[in-house]
Amino acid sequence: MRSTEDPILNDLAALPEVPRDAAAAEALRRRARLVLVGEASEPNPLFVRLSFAWSAAVLPALLLGFGTAYAWASTRLLEQIFLA
């Protein structure tokens, strides 16, 4: 879909490649190569994110929920003991 007549598309086509740190690129190539040949396993990004979601949101929500339920049940029990 390149155009030789549209100046905007031509300017986009003329955008130069973004320079990258050669050492970082080489390190990534080596790591990916190890994964390719099966000498290293890389954690699946989905599992990494689910794990992060578990520790950042689900687990705190569960703890808060159980804590609230426990406090509420305790209050009710104290009411029954001392106010009944």
Binding site: L15, E17, R33
Partner: peptide, 14 residues
């Protein structure tokens, strides 16, 4: 893989 990486890593990065 090395050849694919050499050929396309710059374009993918950009």
């Amino acid at each position: 893989f090395d050849e694919v990486y050499t050929r396309y890593q710059g374009r993918i990065w950009s």
